[in-house]
Amino acid sequence: MRGTTPRALLLGAALLGATGCATGEEWEVWKSNPAHFASGEHLKFSMKNREGKPAEVSRDDVEQARQQNWFGKAITVRQEEILEQ
């Protein structure tokens, strides 16, 4: 699991790609974790960090990307199967 990388990290990596100011180490992270833009909205989010400004990923950005539901609703165990209220 050494290569574990959250989608938020991918967002950050995508931003680095957009700004063109990534360090070599950061490019390595990006190259090893390819991802696609989920939607036009995500692309827009990436683009807003251009123009030479340092890339930043806020908690709201993470949430926005998550809500785009990249991989669809997952099949998972219902909590009621494990715990009772």
């Binding site: 699991m1 050494r2 290569g3 574990t4 990388t5 959250p6 989608r7 938020a8 991918l10 974790n33 991802a35 998550r66 909590q79 199967e81 494990i82 715990l83 009772e84 209220q85």
Partner: peptide, 25 residues
Amino acid sequence: FKPKHLANDARYLSLRVYVEQDASP
């Protein structure tokens, strides 16, 4: 919450999380 497999009113402080990750090969 009460774990379903336990009897009585055993109350466990419970937390559920999903880990968002790109898993390595």
